Amino acid sequence: MGLHRVLSPPGVLPQAARRLDASPGLWPGETRLRVERLNLDAASYRQLREKHHGDGAAVRGEVLEIIRSRGKMHNPVTGSGGMLVGVVEEGPAFPAGTRVATLVSLTLTPLVVTSTSWDGRSEQIPCDGHAILFERSVAAELPADVPVPLALAVMDVCGAPALTERVVRQRRNPVVAVLGAAGKSGSLSLAAARRAGGRAVGVVLDEREAAAIEGLADEVVIADARDAVALSDLKADVTVVCVDVPGCEHAAILATRDGGTVVFFSMATSFSAAALGAEGLGADVTMLIGNGYAPGHADLALTLLREEPGVRAVFEERLR
């Protein structure tokens, strides 16, 4: 689990640590990767970009300082990180030379970045350095038929469609509302919901985003996902929150009928706001934290990318 890499505070797991030992020497069970590319999660990148008013150099500087000082990429404001692609140098997890994507957060992955050409203006960071996988760290070999930046973007959010599919299959012909439907996790969740037998309602901010999910959703609603009143008439059986800005908790709760389920995938979610908001509204809803891991999640997400042209179009547009 990587407890031996925790420098401070003592007794916590690597994800909760303030600082990790990211030295390249391996302990038993560990695997070292030569890092090629990082993918910051959407909430973290948005927070950094807004903090620095779009100044790419400042964003780059803060990201590199976080990694240097903490031994991992762990945004202290959002509490989130992202994931990476690298080539196995040594260790038992994969044969040396295998190109893999980590399916665990950068917030618990010991990481050193030695150089980068990144300009701070995108979520993906081409770079050189090394990272350490623990014995329980989840990773997957990259597919040969998908370009690395595209595969990295998909695998960064592959937990979303997997859990969406699981929840939707537990109900009979449910209405599934996806907030932030034109984003990466949102588009995958729409596709997964329809394949699992749900009627997919995509909630997007404007006409441009509505056009982006044409063909993926059975219905499109244009609204601000932070506007609780605007979404109160949806009465969805399942609401999936994929918006990368804070303040969507109460809208998601009101969009969901009594007895329904809300799945929070956004790292911008305030779970205290969600719990106390539901209590204050007298809302009888089950609320789930979107776990980034589910068995088969990477394969499912890549299948959706290959078989749903609308999903692939959303991802390729974001990578331009």
Rank of each mutant, 00 (worst) to 15 (best):
P174G: 12
M155K: 08
R169G: 06
A182P: 11
A162D: 00
M155F: 07
A162K: 00
E165A: 14
G159C: 08
V176S: 07
L179V: 11
V157K: 08
G159Q: 08
A162F: 05
E165H: 06
V157P: 04
R171Y: 08
P174C: 14
P174A: 14
V178P: 03
L152Q: 09
L179I: 12
P161V: 01
C158K: 02
L152K: 04
L163A: 08
A153N: 02
V176R: 03
L163V: 14
A162Q: 01
A177T: 14
L163Q: 13
A151P: 01
A181P: 04
R169V: 11
V178Q: 03
R171D: 06
G159K: 01
A151Y: 08
P174N: 10
T164G: 06
P161N: 03
P174R: 02
R169Y: 09
V176I: 13
C158R: 00
V168Y: 03
A162C: 06
R166V: 09
V168R: 00
L179Y: 09
V154I: 15
A181E: 04
Q170H: 09
A153K: 07
V176K: 01
A162Y: 03
A151F: 12
V167S: 01
R166N: 07
G159E: 06
A182E: 07
V154N: 04
V176N: 02
V167A: 06
R166I: 08
A177Q: 03
E165N: 06
P161A: 02
N173Y: 10
R171S: 11
A160Q: 02
G183N: 12
R166H: 12
L163F: 04
L179P: 10
E165S: 14
R166D: 13
L163I: 13
A162H: 01
A177S: 14
P174H: 04
V157G: 08
G180I: 11
A182R: 11
L150C: 08
R166A: 12
P149F: 13
A160N: 05
